[in-house]
Design a protein around this nucleic acid. Structure first.
Lengths: 245, 245
DNA sequence: CTTGACCCTCACGTAACGTAAGGCTTTATC
DNA sequence: GATAAAGCCTTACGTTACGTGAGGGTCAAG
């Protein structure tokens, strides 16, 4: 296991990725080992390991192998960016799973008491169960990727810059106790929504999940999380209070 | 949407399970709607919805469709049992994801500071990432199911009864501050391990995850969780302190 | 020097649907 | 009450990410 060119079986044993999978990644040009021995043995280096990690993280996000390959081609995709995405996704999953677990426990309790659970409960459970692990669905990813390309890197950066600013303003209104229905707050909430939509391509499903992702992202840019949740709550109230269009 | 025989598309829309998937489930005899209209339209009742929920929960646990079908045939499998399994699995996932997320954040920070992360980190991340969502692997499930059949229902119940008893004893030693290496504790730890192995068929991978499941299960039988964790920790120390065989 | 553990390259198999084709039925619209 | 549009049916081939051998070199150990 020691000496850092590893043979395929060694890498497989250490990572839990099957030999066949590594062969497959090589075949499709997703991860080709940096070296081959004289006899044609695949030899993987640290660089290959790092790339494999990126790949597995992206797969955990729901990327297909092809999407992962394309994504890793893009120059702005740095290793820590991938890690951040993975972390954001995990936190999202955790939140969703936590609430589902609570719900399931309730239903189980109810079932044990009177064996009579309304079908509506089951319908909702099915829906939520499906959503978990599917948060970034393939079409959603499609849109995300397209948007990412269409907006261009600098556009994205601009949005990134606007977020903290916008959040600071919202925070100010919140501290001041302004009613979420107030026009000033409404304007901020609208802008918030626009920013989200700009990034998501207007898909409401993706908006929900990516909303939280942005929350993470901007957290990383130097803000605190507990607070953020209350901010989100405030904005949501504002949306709820909005005159319908 | 109201009237409870639903057509396939209605059910699909409400649950997020695709029409094709429902057709598929019908084809393979996993979920055949209770009724058909004169024109041959599939009509799903509340009972069908409840079954669909079971199926999706089992799928979330990593069951294949065939395994789910067989599992649901068994008479001791009640709806709330499936819910409990699902809950246990979710909590397990949450714990694993939480620790992975922490790890990823650490690594990301380290990367941003010196851009130099030891390969060992990546190897471990890959391994853990793989394990999540794979906790119950198909072969593991195989073993679980086989064991479930081989042990028989009453054997299981006996084990169920022994758990609280055993845990009470462990708790007593722990409260007393007995060293985990002490022979009394060692005996209890061995029995603990035996019980786990009896249920898991001796597979160490499954033992780890099912250990937590039992934790949940027995919790449900009326014990408190926070405490349980420290119990587990204590037993693990005992295992670590065991003279190697 | 042989034997077991690995490695290679084909190459076909599989699970759980996706997707499209061709053709009825039900619902909505005028 | 006709005429779409929308939804349902079956049949059937396509897809992704590998699993699972088959047939045959390679290499460290005894």
């Amino acid at each position: 296991m020691r000496p850092p060119p590893w043979k395929v079986g060694e890498l497989a044993k250490r990572t839990g990725v099957s030999v066949r999978a590594l062969h497959h990644y090589d075949e499709i040009g997703l991860l080709s080992p940096s070296h081959r021995s004289g006899a044609g043995y695949r030899l993987y280096t640290e660089i290959d390991v790092a790339r494999l990690q990126q790949i597995r993280s992206l797969r955990a996000l729901g990327f297909s192998l092809e999407e992962a390959r394309d994504f890793l081609k893009r120059p702005e995709v740095t290793p820590d960016r991938v890690l951040q995405l993975h972390v954001a996704h995990l936190k999202e999953q955790i939140a969703a799973q936590q609430s589902l677990a609570d719900r399931l426990e309730q239903v189980a309790r109810r079932w044990r008491s009177d064996e009579n659970v309304p079908t509506e409960e089951f319908l909702q459970i099915i829906e939520v169960t499906n959503m978990i692990g599917k948060y970034y669905t393939s079409e959603q990813m499609e849109q995300l990727k397209q948007r990412g390309e269409m907006l261009g890197a600098d556009h994205i950066r601009q949005a990134e810059a606007e977020w903290p600013e916008l959040m600071a303003k919202v925070q100010a209104e919140m501290d001041r106790g302004t009613d979420p229905a107030d026009e000033r707050v409404q304007a901020l909430a609208r802008r918030w929504k626009e920013l989200v939509e700009e990034f998501t391509g207007g898909d409401p499903g993706i908006a929900k999940s990516v909303g939280r992702m942005w929350q993470e992202e901007t957290t990383i840019h130097g803000m605190d999380t507990g607070n953020m949740r209350s901010l989100m709550g405030y904005v949501q109230k504002a949306w709820a209070a909005a005159p319908k269009e």
